[in-house]
Design a binder for these strands. Structure first.
Length: 357
DNA sequence: CACACGTGGTC
DNA sequence: TGACCAAGTGT
């Protein structure tokens, strides 16, 4: 046997070992259900992949059930009101995903006859679908051979081949290595097997190497330092910003606004604020003239790139006319149905708890 | 390429 | 308890 043949044999072994483990230990996830005996519903695969971007499986599952029951296919989702989807997405984070979800569903209905394209390149042109998601959908929903690389697979591959180049410079190398071990048969199961391995065995900390099916192929294990991979750059410090949120009560109702379509928490319902953002503190000026009282307890919230310390100002609106700020009155007892981002839910809970309603 | 963009879980 | 991180994409 030549060296080249041996190498091909080894990489083939890796796929076979992973698929064998997947056949016995695949996680039972709702989007993996197969209506017939073929691949899962492409709508389910697409929806789950968008929800799973930078989000844990446990967080996604309840949202996936709600969305698929309420909007069972592309046609139903494309026809619904934007505000309903944004509210249903509340709490899941990265709200641009929800905006792109709707844009994508409408493009599928209008430009693709209600059917998701089955080619990686066509998928890539749709809103919210990047290189990872296009490859994942092509492989999982349509059984196309595609090189799927997410953070799990990056970690598995960087350990398997002991890739010492720091991310993101290592990405081209990782992509090539994953290409090498991706099989022509069952590419979708292979991708999911890699992700299951990364989530369950080849974990960030304290990987379970003794029970790993790839242990004897793994260069990092042979070197005794799997946790050293992948090599990542240092994190930047988060600035701390301060700001104010305004609680405008009228009887049992509170005044809600809608945030601009772009930027942080874009298109989401919200409480009025004083313009705080990642780069600067809020200006502290109320949105309109009223008798404001400041609650004694502040609310802190951590975003990806900054921390926020929020003061809550409350007022009882006694005028007959609505406040001079575009918005709507919302029943305080059904605020959970307003679909507020978590930061505003926390502030609302604080205002409510302190008896300001 | 670097940064903006949420949230909840983990140790 | 604070740092780290998760099935990334858009600009």
């Amino acid at each position: 046997m030549t060296v080249v043949q041996h190498s091909v044999q080894k990489t083939g072994d890796i796929a076979a070992l992973l698929l064998d483990r997947y056949d016995r230990h695949a996680r039972d996830l709702p989007w993996r259900k197969r209506p017939g005996h073929g691949a899962p519903d492409p709508y389910h695969v697409w929806l789950s992949e968008i929800m799973l971007q930078q989000t844990t499986v446990a967080a996604v599952i309840p949202y996936f059930h709600i969305f698929t029951q309420r909007w069972p296919d592309f046609t139903a989702l494309a026809a619904c009101d934007d505000a309903d989807v944004m509210a249903a997405w509340a709490g899941l984070g990265y709200y641009a995903r929800a905006r792109n979800l709707l844009r994508c569903a409408r493009a599928v209905v209008q430009d693709h006859g209600g059917m998701l394209p089955d080619q990686e390149k066509a998928l890539l042109s749709l809103p919210g679908i990047g290189p990872y998601t296009a490859a994942a959908i092509a492989a999982i929903a349509f059984d196309r051979r595609a090189v799927v690389v997410d953070a799990n697979i990056e970690r598995v591959a960087s350990r398997l081949f002991a890739i010492a180049t720091p991310l993101p410079r290592a990405k081209p190398d990782i992509y090539q290595r994953v290409d090498t071990i991706t099989p022509a048969q069952r590419p979708g199961d292979f991708a999911q097997a890699m992700m299951d391995l990364g989530a369950g065995i080849c974990s960030v900390k304290a990987p379970s190497c003794p029970i790993c099916p790839l242990q004897h192929h793994c260069m990092a294990w042979q070197a005794g330092n799997p946790e050293a991979y992948p090599v990542k750059p240092a994190k930047k410090a988060k600035p701390v910003r301060t700001g104010t949120i305004y609680w405008v009560r009228k009887g049992g109702r509170v005044w809600l606004v809608r945030r601009p379509d772009t930027g942080m928490l874009g298109a989401m319902r919200a409480l009025p604020d004083d313009g705080w953002n990642a780069r600067e503190n809020g200006h502290g000026l109320p949105p309109f003239d009223a008798s404001w009282t400041f609650l004694p307890k502040s609310v802190s919230h951590i975003f990806t790139h900054f921390a926020l310390e929020i003061t809550i100002a409350v007022t009882a609106w006694g005028e007959k006319a609505d406040p001079p700020l575009e918005g709507e009155w919302w029943d305080v007892n059904s605020l959970d149905k307003a679909g507020l981002p978590t930061l505003f839910s926390k502030a609302a809970k604080e205002a409510f708890a302190l008896g300001e309603t």
